[in-house]
Design a protein around this nucleic acid. Sequence first.
DNA 1: GAGTGGTCTAGACCACACT
DNA 2: GTGTGGTCTAGACCACTCC
Lengths: 243, 243
Amino acid sequence: MTAEPGVTAPPRSKYLQIKDALLEAYIDGKPAGSALPPERVLAADFGVTRVTVRRAIDELESDGLVYRVQGGGTYSVGPSIAKSLRLTSFSEDVRARGRTPSSRLLEVAHGAAGDEVGRSLHLSPGDGVVTVRRLRMADGEPMCLEVCALAAATVPGLEDLDLTGSLYELLERHYGIAPTRAEQLIEATVLDEHDAAMLGVPPFSAALRATRTSYDSRGGPVEYAVTTYRADRYSLRFAVRRD
Amino acid sequence: MTAEPGVTAPPRSKYLQIKDALLEAYIDGKPAGSALPPERVLAADFGVTRVTVRRAIDELESDGLVYRVQGGGTYSVGPSIAKSLRLTSFSEDVRARGRTPSSRLLEVAHGAAGDEVGRSLHLSPGDGVVTVRRLRMADGEPMCLEVCALAAATVPGLEDLDLTGSLYELLERHYGIAPTRAEQLIEATVLDEHDAAMLGVPPFSAALRATRTSYDSRGGPVEYAVTTYRADRYSLRFAVRRD
DNA sequence: GAGTGGTCTAGACCACACT
DNA sequence: GTGTGGTCTAGACCACTCC
């Protein structure tokens, strides 16, 4: 059972392959409002059942890339808009925008979890946590300040590793920990003089603050992170639907 | 054509009924991490196929209320967290929080669309738009400033209607227009003296700004709205997953 | 009426977790 | 091995839109 030459990727599910094919054929570079072929036609073309085609289109719809009209058809929203809400690390995020991520490590500290962090990580307030403070940059330009807390017991020796890259990659490689889902809170705030100076903006500038608790596939909390983004460099864009 | 006594709601799809039943039985009031029964058991209990049960659980998962572990099971995230990202009007939003919405109408103006609004509403810059400025409140307390633009041709006589309630309800009732999806941009900003006074907070306070373009079921743009929320009263909370 | 998306059935096999 | 969720098939009927 060998793969076709040029097909080096691991065998992905059909509906994901179809999603990519639809993206390339009917969405990327097509004007907004272009119609996709009917589901039954696509099913025949791809040699799958309609259920599988629908699954692919379900993903495109929840990503905000197409919309459906019952009895009407399926239409492209247009090529440029609508980034979906996926759990991504800062490094992945910056690379996806075609820029180069880097970090300046500000502090690695051991201490007690305390109340809020302990509750989020399912620890007692006195349990040990490692706190990593970093200034994160894209093409060398400051983008956000990140404070990340992890249960000390789960990441022994973290402070001796290179913390200027992707924390998610590092957790996976050294500890076999991989966050798969997270709860996220987005607020607006104003930067104090210290944080503003770090980010290279005037004091009292606006900022977006994201507070995130990440969980691994077994449901255990992995990371509690507070990230403060420059308002002039960061925004959230997504599609919403009505029930 | 009368409904059954006691069955006042229109017949909803099975998977939505199952979703509600699962919510009540296994999520509301249950501690985080509680396991749901296996999909095959639920299918038998509800007298449907596994596909239909999975569809219900798909919705719960994308709402951030449960998470699944392949080979393991399906678990509740807990009762309190994770509001989903649905397209809701301010009035609906406030009522969902158990408070009473109200509005103060600041201005209704006719004018040319201009560049940005025109592009969003698929109009020429010189086409007419109606702009509605409102201060929106919950239990009488200022929550946000809303500026909403609609194509003048689609809402004749809008300025003579009662604009202190839900704009979505009004669009539906008087013009048969119902937004079904939207693209939304979230940014952080700082309030100027005028807006801060309107919202009853000190000048230069932080605020969340949401810029939204809504579309009806046929894909036509309906509304271009910029809403500025008090940062101390409004935040966004949602669940994210990794691919 | 013809065509489209929306829902649902009754199975099957695979990948992964637990023990 | 057994049980779980993940994917997929080959149909069916309904609700809606457009002509």
